[in-house]
Design a binder for these strands. Structure first.
Lengths: 111, 111
DNA sequence: TTGTATTGCAACCAGATAGTTGCTATTCAT
DNA sequence: ATGAATAGCAACTATCTGGTTGCAATACAA
């Protein structure tokens, strides 16, 4: 698989993740408070722990958070900025590409 | 409503739009070929015209495409880059914010 | 050992989403 | 007037998504 396809796949997962306000909420709490457990997050957000757990699973699958297993069966989830940066680059490239193509079409019509 | 909320609302719609491969396909065709009708797009993509029309409605709602009514009842949809740029700025700000907060947390632990 | 706190799994529900088919209306050419 | 091409609307289906409740298992404290 070409590298650009893998980039697009990661970007897609990031877009899916950021498309949901509750997931953005989870990420915001993690950014503000540092690594937290699902139970901690459920205290600060208006949904149940199990709902949080599902969102965390999706975020972990996208690489946006990673789980670290601590003492007493506790699992803390921490932010992982790399996929965000990838998605940002993908978005920037897409915008540039569009602008370039639209300019080319415009010039083609004028010329 | 504060301006940042409106930015976030637009960014969310862009993320939703870009989260779907078929929608990215529609946008790619529009970028490559310029404004096109739903029927044109249906010829180039593996889904029916009606499915395309639904995606176009969502994209238009997000401001990513605009409809121009032409002759003979034809409606052509063209790319609109502004919301993309907004989403890009939102994503960049988010990434910066995370990095800043994570650094602060790290320094807090070390200091 | 009993209790408390935590995680993980499964079943279930309601609503949204993607797609299809079928139909109607409009426009223009023959 | 007929026919071809296009766009829009509605109904229907299947799948995905977000959320809940309930329950079992684990770990530690008293």
């Amino acid at each position: 698989m070409p590298a650009t396809d893998r980039v697009e796949a990661v970007a897609e997962q990031v877009f899916v993740a950021l498309a949901d306000p509750r997931r953005r909420g989870v990420l915001a709490v993690l950014a503000a408070n540092g690594p937290s457990t699902a139970t901690d997050l459920a205290d600060r957000l208006p949904i149940t722990r199990q709902a949080i757990a599902k969102h965390l699973a999706l975020l972990a699958d996208a690489g946006l958070v990673t789980a670290e297993h601590g003492e007493r069966r506790r699992v803390r989830y921490g932010l992982q900025p790399a996929p965000m940066q990838l998605a940002q680059q993908f978005l920037a490239a897409l915008t540039r590409d569009w602008d370039h193509r639209l300019d080319a079409l415009k010039n083609h019509l004028e010329g």
